[in-house]
Design a protein around this nucleic acid. Structure first.
Length: 396
RNA sequence: GGCGGGAUGUCCGAGUGGUUAAAGGAGACGGGCUGUAAACCCGUUGGCUCUGCCUACGCAGGUUCGAAUCCUGCUCCCGCCA
């Protein structure tokens, strides 16, 4: 039997922090002694419908807990989403409608299932509206646990307060609500990104006020987006969704700046290839590993081949969507048909032609020829830039 | 309750009567280059029936030959003092 110490060491291997020191190990020991599972909590913020690689870091960590026999309690923050987590933000989040939240939550659960073990013995899903839709009296009890000074210790609040930027009461309430989630589900461990450290630790205080054992806290480093700088997030458009196609996953990973690769290997728990290879090959290996994880090895090979053909050798891809155009007249006004085919405005189409960005069967269109013959387009592959293709077929 | 600040294009943010479709930055897109959908360089970035026209600087009016810029009212947001 493995010791609690070694299990703890294993779990914290690529974590940022495990707080307070020794707490996780103590929890593991306790669980073993009492012969029970640990309840490991993760709060999900259903403000965007897609799970991306950033979420996968934490979810994969939860999976490790499951593989050691523990129980993951996923909390869909359907109620807290009405408040908006201010973590790391300089402004108040927009509030979602109930319908959006419900739809996002459903999609979240389905996607989380790709990483987590959904065996009911080891998996529990809860919505925090279940307990946060509380009476005023209960809210007052909750609010009594914490002071404004405590909340203002949090870096983003402190910064905003100092600079005279607005802080809404709603936002101050968020950490309290999240902490109450820990009370409601009696969590033993809570996991989150390093930007959650304050909230996770406050959860301990709140549990204590309610006379409960305090949770251990584990934070995971934040995965950068494909820009290699900012936190991966849908809003910034630098994410790789775990539902993305193999080609998209591969290509987007190839966009990652070389310097950011090491962090990705570490956080995504992908073994680094031998360092005899150059950065290009390293990045290819990373891309293939990611595609393999969410699709399979064959898909990774195909994605690589596709990438090489399209972006290295600049070939027209084999499979191109067909666009049917009206070829009744003899000549076609290019901006019009491009706008229709690619969903851009005619002005934009005109600009693209002027910049030499439009190719028909590989040849750039002359900017003087805004009207072309229908025959030229018939059966041709029209290309905008390096990434957008459509096969034109006359509509007859 | 009092005082003050603010609302500009996808975002941030200049601009206080006239070459302003609106500086600058970010983002995005196109081209070049490249191991790369990286970096770097160049360019573009409201729409259209495109040597011109239309729409746009919170909303509604007004002044003016002419307003994002001045005036009036309204809506919303924020800070400070009490």
């Amino acid at each position: 039997m493995e010791s609690a110490a070694s299990k703890s060491a294993q779990l914290t291997a690529n974590a940022a922090e495990a707080l307070p020191a020794g707490a996780l190990e103590a929890k593991l020991e306790l669980a073993e002694k009492e012969g029970r599972q640990l309840r490991v909590k993760l709060g999900l913020d259903p403000t965007a419908p897609d799970i991306h690689l950033g979420h996968s870091v934490v979810l994969t960590k939860l999976r490790e807990f499951q593989d050691q026999g523990h129980r993951v309690v996923l909390i869909v923050g359907d109620y807290t989403a009405r408040v908006g987590d201010p973590s790391g933000r300089s402004e108040t989040r927009p509030v979602l409608t109930t319908e959006e939240i419900v739809a996002n939550a459903a999609s979240y659960e389905a996607q989380a299932g790709r990483i987590l073990d959904q065996d009911p013995e080891r998996y529990e899903l809860r919505y925090n509206s279940e307990w946060l839709d509380m009476s005023m009296a209960d809210l007052l009890t909750l609010v009594r646990t914490t002071t404004v000074a405590q909340l203002l210790e949090r870096e983003d609040f402190a910064n905003r307060y100092r600079s005279g930027a607005p802080i809404s009461i709603l936002e101050l309430l968020y950490p309290l609500m999240q902490g109450y989630d820990s009370v409601a589900i009696a969590s033993d461990v809570e996991i989150g990104g390093t930007d959650q450290t304050f909230n996770l630790l406050l959860g301990r205080d709140i549990q204590r006020h309610y006379g409960m054992a305090e949770q251990a806290v584990m934070t995971m480093p934040i995965l950068t987006g494909i820009d290699g700088v900012e936190k991966m997030s849908k809003t910034k458009g630098n994410e790789i969704a775990i539902e993305a196609s193999a080609d998209e996953m591969f290509g987007r990973t190839m966009r990652l700046p070389d310097e950011a690769m090491a962090g990705w290997f570490d956080l995504l728990a992908i073994p680094s290839p031998p360092d005899v290879t150059g950065p290009r090959d390293t990045k290819v290996a990373l891309s293939k590993a990611i595609v393999t994880r969410f699709h399979d090895a064959a898909a990774a090979d195909r994605a690589e081949a596709q990438f090489v053909s399209q972006f290295v050798e600049h070939e027209i891809p084999e499979e191109v969507d067909t666009f049917r155009f009206e070829a009744s007249g003899g000549s076609i006004h290019l901006p019009m048909v491009l706008a229709e085919a690619f969903g851009i405005s005619r002005s934009e189409a005109r600009r693209l032609v002027e910049q030499g960005g439009v190719k028909v069967d590989g040849d750039a269109v002359d900017s003087c020829d805004l009207d072309v013959s229908a025959e030229l387009l018939s059966g041709a592959v029209v290309q905008i830039g390096r990434r957008r293709f459509k096969r034109f077929e006359p509509n007859r």
